[in-house]
Design a protein around this nucleic acid. Structure first.
Lengths: 189, 189
DNA sequence: ATTCTGATTCGATACTCATCAAAATGATTT
DNA sequence: AAATCATTTTGATGAGTATCGAATCAGAAT
């Protein structure tokens, strides 16, 4: 009911996604202010200011210390800096993405489209992106140590599609496999 | 018309103030993606994704390089880091506030309320904050070198209000003036 | 105790915006 | 040239929200 759930990143940005709230934050960055002061400076009704401040407080950006019968709001610099660090860290930004490796959903969809119920390719997608998905899938057939002869490569690819030539060439072209001169040995990269 | 106006801070926060846009940013933090990919991963219609990406692009967070007939969007890390630095800098945050010294508007309003057209106080505000505004205003009457005798202080304050005693006492109480023992001389602090 | 005053809450209104479907655009393949 | 495909634009709709005024609440001053 009253769990102090950590304010989500979205909520944080929503709190700052308003011109007047940003102005308020800027003012509070100078020194604490009461609601009435902010109201006159921002030219907004006290009720509106109170509404804004409650949103800022909800994400921990401001704190109110009630002194006298003034509610004095002050900016929480630590909270600001914490979020700033998150934005600066590439890893944190990557974490904005939903779980599940980023391409899983797309790959799954593509594979579902082109693979029949027995796991074989009905036809090859001509779109580069989708073709790459197929190739990555095909690469899963080569999870042991290489290298492999061309005949071995063909044998494995055959379980996916009869058009082994296109698959084999795709792997080379997209830099997923290399072939030494003479074409005797194939290796993963 | 077509001026490349620098994307405002508000626009930047608005761009990130949406769950799906944040997810998109997270995905693009891993690697570039096409609209279709994002569409399937985010489970949104391509038109919606396009709309989101255009918002992100408007604030310089992403760039699109059209390859084939795919529009490949990639994250602009520099833009992100630049904004992160702004959030981390106290001075930048202060700059969110409108120009004009923060208290000007409040002071002006209070003075407008309590001063009549001839610049005299109709009555004294009893609220500390407003009273202080009046006192700061009154202090402007003493911009020459002190000290002043009590009679001189009274004479100057009289131009503001007949209740010179309250004003004089307020100046002392709020630490704006000091009085040597005996009350012969008043000085600014 | 009663009366002020500043702050918050509530209800209403107008505006913004996320989302989708359909149509338009632009580029690629046949 | 025609057809296809990814993307964008446009229009409509529904959800969200900024704002205000009125009512309520809580301290302070008289």
């Amino acid at each position: 009911m009253s769990m102090h759930e950590p304010p989500s990143i979205v909520a944080f940005f929503k709190a700052l996604a308003d011109a007047n709230r940003l102005r308020a934050v800027g003012l509070l960055a100078h020194r604490p202010h009461s609601v009435e002061e902010l109201s006159t400076i921002l030219d907004l009704r006290p009720s509106t200011v109170s509404h804004h401040l409650s949103k800022l407080a909800a994400v921990g950006l401001v704190h109110s210390s009630t002194s006298g019968h003034y509610h004095v709001y002050s900016l929480d610099l630590d909270a600001l800096h914490a979020q700033a660090r998150k934005l600066a860290s590439d890893e944190s930004v990557k974490a904005f993405a939903p779980e599940h490796g980023p391409s899983d959903a797309f790959d799954a969809k593509v594979l579902a489209t082109f693979l029949d119920e027995r796991g074989r390719l009905t036809k090859l997608p001509m779109k580069r992106k989708k073709f790459q998905v197929i190739l990555r899938h095909a690469l899963g057939l080569f999870d042991d140590e290489g290298p492999w002869s061309e005949r071995e490569v063909n044998r494995r690819l055959k379980t996916l599609s009869d058009d082994v030539a296109s698959l084999r060439r795709g792997m080379i072209d997209h830099g997923m496999m290399t072939r030494d001169q003479g074409g005797k040995h194939y290796r993963r990269v």
